[in-house]
Amino acid sequence: MSGKPAFQRILLKLSGEALMGQLNFGISPDVTSFLAHEIKGVIESGVQVALVVGGGNIFRGEGLARAGMDRVTGDHMGMLATVINGLALQDAIERVGVPVRVQSALRINEVCEDYIRRKAVRHLEKGRVVIFSAGTGNPFFTTDSAAALRAIEINADLMLKATKVDGIYTADPKKHADARRYEELTYDEALSKRLGVMDQTAMVLCRDHGVRLCVYDMDRPGALQAIIGGDLSIGTRVHT
């Protein structure tokens, strides 16, 4: 990336499933290493980076709730899964020479910090990656909603959602050959069309607080840096 980055502070949302790579369960070291190098390139350009990661590669509370488990218990177990993923990403990113802090919405002081907004912002200002784990700390809220909330709280210039496709489509492009990719959308359009970008709570939060969103293909090398550099041809942009 050449020139001044288009954004100073970003929040990147990763699904837990994305960390599996070609595995059926767990965390792929190849995926975490790839993500670490992508994030390092962005940090070196002077951009502040925060992350929110899901836990679906390890545990999904909603699924077990449908099978009979208490939903609150299941969601708390899912939050703990995101802490595991956060620690794995911390290790991978620090291996490439970038300092990282994991902050948890649940108190687990032996392995990570408590989430404190002002402390998180200070870490970002010092060039550290901050990984927000354990969702919002409350059951019934997805990690998409947690990402939207944290993006608002830290005043991120851009929220990115890393997916397995290169943007938002009219239908699933893997199932429908005629699916068309949107270059940009408003949140109201995404909500009314039920495009499944994020859950409705997350989208309404982003819409009401003016958070800019870009949905892009996380497997494309250099995509993250290109977006930060202002390349509008990558992914789908969503705005108010």
Rank of each mutant, 00 (worst) to 15 (best):
M1Q: 12
K4L: 05
P5R: 10
Q8N: 12
Q8D: 11
I10D: 11
L11Q: 09
K13D: 02
L14H: 00
S15W: 00
G16Y: 00
G21N: 01
F25L: 06
F25G: 04
I27H: 13
S28Y: 10
P29V: 06
D30L: 12
V31T: 14
V31A: 03
T32S: 03
S33N: 12
S33P: 00
F34Q: 08
F34A: 03
L35P: 08
I39P: 00
G41S: 13
S45M: 10
V47W: 05
Q48F: 05
V49E: 12
V49G: 13
V52T: 06
V53C: 10
G54S: 06
G55I: 01
G56R: 02
N57V: 06
G61N: 08
G63L: 09
A65Q: 00
D70S: 05
G74T: 03
A81V: 03
A81H: 05
T82F: 09
N85W: 00
N85H: 12
L87T: 10
L87C: 08
A88F: 13
D91G: 05
I93Y: 02
I93Q: 03
V96H: 12
R101N: 09
V102F: 01
Q103K: 11
S104A: 12
N109H: 09
V111F: 05
C112G: 12
Y115K: 08
A120E: 09
R122K: 15
H123D: 08
R128G: 03
V130P: 10
I131F: 04
I131Y: 01
T136W: 00
G137P: 11
N138E: 13
F140C: 01
F141V: 02
F141C: 08
T142A: 04
S145V: 15
A146L: 05
A146E: 10
A147I: 12
A147K: 03
A148G: 12
R150S: 08
A151L: 07
I154F: 13
N155E: 09
A156Q: 05
D157W: 03
L158P: 14
L158F: 00
M159H: 06
L160G: 09
V165K: 09
T170Q: 11
A171D: 15
K174Y: 07
R181A: 03
R181L: 13
Y182C: 14
E183F: 04
E184C: 11
E184T: 15
L185W: 15
T186N: 14
Y187A: 10
K193T: 05
K193S: 15
K193F: 08
R194I: 03
V197Q: 06
V197S: 03
D199I: 07
C206V: 08
G210C: 01
C214Q: 04
Y216K: 01
D219S: 07
A223C: 15
Q225D: 07
I228Y: 01
G229I: 10
G230A: 09
G230Q: 14
D231I: 13
S233L: 11
I234S: 06
G235M: 07
R237L: 11
V238S: 01
V238Q: 04
